[in-house]
Design a protein around this nucleic acid. Structure first.
Length: 949
DNA sequence: GCGACACC
DNA sequence: GGTGTCGC
């Protein structure tokens, strides 16, 4: 882990402050750190954390931080647009600077900056001067421009972030990366290809690839420009035309090494910080763990930079001769656990502060471990397997932790019989009701253990779900959470089994010590996350939702996923052939009509055919990447202009059906039981909905006739039926309920068709006289309201004019006035307390609601309206699922819940159970919660999913 | 990474 | 408004 030669005593680290601050800020953008007063401290945290990590890892002898000091630089006088493309600095960063300055001052770290010069130039100048004094300089920055300064004694140090390792670029690395002879050529490289961030124009028509080629051939931009006669065609013209720009670019890209700054080495000595002053600042911005890390980084190091303290206890089989001593031996071992506990909990010394990870590979020791575990109130566990697919994965080991820094690893044999024996030892632990079993992504472990006949029972706590409830918009990976909340970066699985892909190795092939360190660390980290999240859930009133909805639901989902659903493979195979034929015919027709053969699947090529060759729309819209937009709604508007459009739309539909469903689904059938097993992600959708992946079974077609047929391929097994039950208009019913909008409530209570009823009110006509078009328009408005859409989007969807759409919305709010009030109230609430919530108290934080950027704020406002509705509907369905599962199990029925599609549940039921199951399902769904608006559920039964509708 | 399109 | 997957 040490990258430096420790004997070398003059190692200077120069930190490019803004680059590091930006990097830290954006790394946390999806999970910003906020103080209780609402101050965004992501940038401060990111920077400080990296700084401490750097000191801990590298123990620099000399260190300084370099800032830009504003004011025009030399370059701006040459080229006014320089850096014009840099987006405005986020508020959180501007606000961070004073704090970072204070922290640096308290740490006695010099802050450098020269007015009129960029940080790059200051770093370059000092690095050059330090080189003459015999220093090795590390320029700490992610910015590739610095590569030009690299020499034997000057290197780039790219700190690791988000799972990436620290990267040090010396001469050889730079040469290899850019395929050049000398790092100085990086300047030519940048001058040729340009850099949009720094607004270096570069040569026209030259990108990364061409620049590399040119450098190999010509060595420098000057030499290239002197020999442009050797180039050909368009490229020649472009390069020649932009020659002057190229020369200027070189000037812009060159980092100055003679800025007016002196190198007073004695000022850069790394000194011991003023811990108290640092703590003062940390307290102010509510950094708690970082202080420990800081303290540790400066604490004397016992043995090099090692932070791992490993104590191995291997219990060998007891021989007959030793039998007499057996009882004593067990006692001794037991005592050892206690000792280890104490050692781990003792924070006073560095050696024991870190961790104690040990493997337990002997049945006798394992039994004692279990005895020990059973005495705990809360234990965290984790399973290691050969695969991420729970149905194929074999258990390789299990780890356990119930105290910070202490964890045990139990390897599990490849031999199935031995594996089952090991698991038997741990059964009492997994089944103990009042012992809280903590894990990260517990559903995975639950499913793995099910295959070894172990059902995890009783109290459970999934740290991934916990964090999802605390911050649903964030990321929830364990490594990520560890870095953010614990300031600790766990070993990446990729360092053990290699990068993703076909060459990825197997966890079982790692040696026991490696397995132990990795697995134990996961359990340890997860336990620490538990300690952090559990009180947080309580504080935020999310315990009910967590323990009574999400955790029980996790079990239901695990069972659904294990059950899987049957497919009619024969039909799918035939349909694939049929679609292939239809597609060929359509393609032929499209080629004829366009007079050219091209790839219809390429939106880029299609756009060029339609708008350049056929000139179908002189004002064709472009996408943000500059292509012609060819989305369905745009093509639909052109349908009257050219016959080809219809064929293209039909082609696209069939292509989608074939590639996404008809061909993809059969390949996902699990061999062991001939069924497809989707995965329901409980932590993906920020509103509380589930997401279905691998494959996604929540977007099986239903709208079109041909699409519907695919539902027919989801079939019931022998002697069984498919039951489908879906809520009718659940979101509209809930918005009526929550807002107390009596006009809408009445319509639902009277069993009216809500869209027709809305139309009647909007157009002020009797219900019977509502036309199809009017109903459809009212339907669009109803949905628009759910999504928080405005007049613009409504006009876009209905084909009405902007003012007509506006009138329509006004009329809508007049009829449903309480709805309008409710929506305004949600936005106001979000602005005041920072979040909105569902009927079960599920929160969604909307920090953008106060943004000064109109687009960003409007988005947050739509979320403020939509999230409680979509989320409450999700709450209701989840409650129904838990109740149904409970009832089915209580009645010992063989009916299985298979799928959830947001407002629909799909079951497979033996013929003789269909009636009773149907009753249970309808009853539990309609009565999932108490409401004054009736919740209506439609249930259907059939041999396949299509028939069941 | 983007555009398109399948679902609720 | 919320998703996931496909092909480029």
């Amino acid at each position: 882990m040490d990258n430096m030669d420790a004997t070398q005593d003059k190692r200077l680290f120069l930190i490019d402050a803004y680059a590091m601050i930006f990097r830290g800020y954006y790394a946390l953008i999806r999970n910003p750190r906020l103080t209780s007063a609402g101050l965004d401290t992501s940038a401060i945290f990111g920077f400080t954390n990296s700084l401490i990590e750097l000191i801990r890892r590298e123990r620099p002898t000399h260190l300084a931080v370099v800032f830009d000091v504003g004011e025009a630089s030399i370059r701006t006088t040459d080229f006014l647009e320089y850096k014009a493309n840099r987006s405005e600095t986020p508020e959180a960063i501007t606000a961070a600077i004073p704090y970072i300055h204070r922290i640096l001052q308290a740490m006695h770290i010099p802050i450098l900056g020269v007015a009129g010069y960029e940080a790059d130039d200051v770093i370059g100048t000092i690095a050059c001067k330090a080189e003459k004094e015999g220093y090795t300089t590390f320029m700490v920055t992610p910015d590739k421009d610095f590569a030009q300064l690299v020499t034997d004694k000057i290197k780039i140090y790219k700190p690791g972030l988000k799972g990436s390792e620290v990267e040090i670029l010396g001469v050889e690395e730079v040469k290899a990366k850019y395929q050049i002879e000398d790092p100085k050529q990086v300047i030519d490289f940048l001058a040729m290809m340009g850099d949009s961030v720094d607004n270096i124009p570069g040569l026209e028509g030259v990108g990364e690839k061409t620049a590399m080629k040119f450098l190999k051939e010509y060595g420098s931009i000057e030499n290239l420009l002197a020999n442009t006669h050797e180039l050909k065609g368009k490229l020649k013209e472009k390069v020649e035309a932009s020659a002057e720009r190229g020369i200027l670019s070189k000037k812009l890209a060159t980092i100055i090494c003679d800025a007016p700054v002196e190198f007073h080495q004695e000022q850069y000595d790394l000194e011991t910080p003023d811990f108290e002053k640092v703590k003062e600042v940390f307290d102010e911005i509510e950094f708690r763990r970082l202080y420990d890390n800081l303290y540790r980084a400066f604490a004397p190091i016992v043995s090099g930079n090692t932070t791992v303290t490993n104590v191995e206890i291997t219990v060998t089989e007891i021989t007959p001769q030793q039998k007499v001593a057996q009882a004593v031996g067990q006692l001794d071992l037991f005592a050892t656990y206690e000792e280890l506990d104490q050692a781990a909990g003792n924070k006073s010394t560095i050696e024991h502060n870190d961790h104690l990870y040990q493997f337990v590979d002997n049945p006798k020791a394992q039994k004692m471990l279990v005895r020990n575990l059973l005495q705990q109130r809360v234990v965290c566990f984790d399973t290691e397997t050969t695969s991420l697919n729970e149905l194929e994965a074999e258990l390789v080991g299990m780890s356990f932790s119930y105290k910070k820094g202490l964890a045990y690893y139990v390897p599990v044999s490849e031999d199935q019989g031995e594996a089952l024996q090991t698991l038997e030892i741990f059964r009492p632990f997994f089944e103990k009701e009042d012992l809280v079993k903590v894990a990260h992504n517990l559903k995975f472990d639950y499913k793995i253990l099910r295959r070894y006949n172990i059902t995890v029972k009783g109290a459970m706590f999934d740290t991934m779900i916990a964090h999802y409830l605390l911050n649903p918009d964030g990321r929830h990976g364990m490594d990520y959470l560890s870095e953010i909340y614990l300031g600790y970066k766990p070993v990446s699985i990729e360092t053990i089994i290699g990068k993703k892909g076909k060459n990825q190795g197997n966890f079982r092939d790692a040696d026991l010590r490696t397995q132990t360190d990795y697995a134990a660390e996961d359990a340890d980290v997860t336990f620490q996350l538990y300690e952090l999240f559990a009180p947080q859930l309580k504080k935020e009133n999310l315990e009910d939702l967590f323990f009574n909805i999400e955790m029980p639901l996790m079990e239901v989902l695990a069972k659904m996923e294990l059950a899987g659903i049957s497919l009619d493979e024969k039909w799918l195979a035939q349909e694939s052939i049929d679609l292939e034929n239809d597609l060929k015919q359509l393609e032929q027709k499209i080629f004829e009509l366009s007079g050219e053969e091209f790839n219809v699947n390429s939106p880029k090529q299609l756009g060029e055919i339609l708008f350049e060759k056929l000139q179908l729309d002189p004002k064709a819209k472009k996408t943000k990447t500059g292509q012609y937009a060819t989305s369905e709604d745009i093509l639909q508007k052109l349908a009257a202009k050219h016959e080809i459009i219809q064929h293209i739309l039909e082609y696209r539909t069939y292509q989608k059906l074939k590639s996404t469903y008809v061909d993809a689904l059969p390949s996902q059938i699990e061999k062991s039981d001939n069924r497809v097993h989707t995965n329901f992600s409980q932590t993906t959708a920020a509103t509380g909905r589930l997401a279905s992946v691998n494959p996604n079974l929540q977007n099986i077609p239903i709208r079109t006739l041909r699409g519907q047929q695919i539902r027919g391929a989801f079939v019931a097994g022998e002697g069984k039926k498919i039951i489908s039950a879906d809520y009718s208009q659940i979101e509209l019913r809930l918005i009526a309920e929550i807002s107390g909008e009596d006009n809408m409530i009445k319509a639902f209570q009277n069993g009216e068709d809500i869209h027709a009823s809305t139309a009647a009110k909007l157009f002020n006509i009797p219900l019977e006289e509502v036309s199809k078009i009017q109903r459809s328009q009212a339907k669009t408005v109803n949905f628009g309201i759910l999504y928080g859409q405005g007049a613009f989007a409504l006009a876009e969807q209905t084909g009405l004019s902007r003012s007509e759409a506006k009138q329509m919305i006004e009329a809508y709010f007049e009829t449903y006035s309480k709805l309008k009030a409710y929506m305004a109230e949600q936005v106001k609430k979000a602005r005041e307390i920072g979040y909105v919530e569902t009927i079960l108290g599920r929160k969604r934080h909307l920090k953008d609601i106060t943004s000064n950027n109109f687009v960003v704020r409007a988005h947050a406002e739509r979320n403020a309206v939509n999230a409680p509705i979509q989320g409450s509907a999700a709450d209701v369905v989840k409650m129904a699922m838990i109740k149904i599962q409970k009832e089915l199990e209580k009645e010992k029925l063989k009916t299985r819940m298979l799928l959830q599609v947001h407002d629909e549940l799909v079951f497979e039921s033996p013929l003789d159970e269909v009636e009773v199951a149907t009753n249970i399902i309808k009853m539990e769904m309609e009565n999932a919660i108490e409401t004054q608006v009736p919740l209506l559920v439609e249930v259907g039964v059939g041999d396949n999913w299509l028939e069941a509708h």
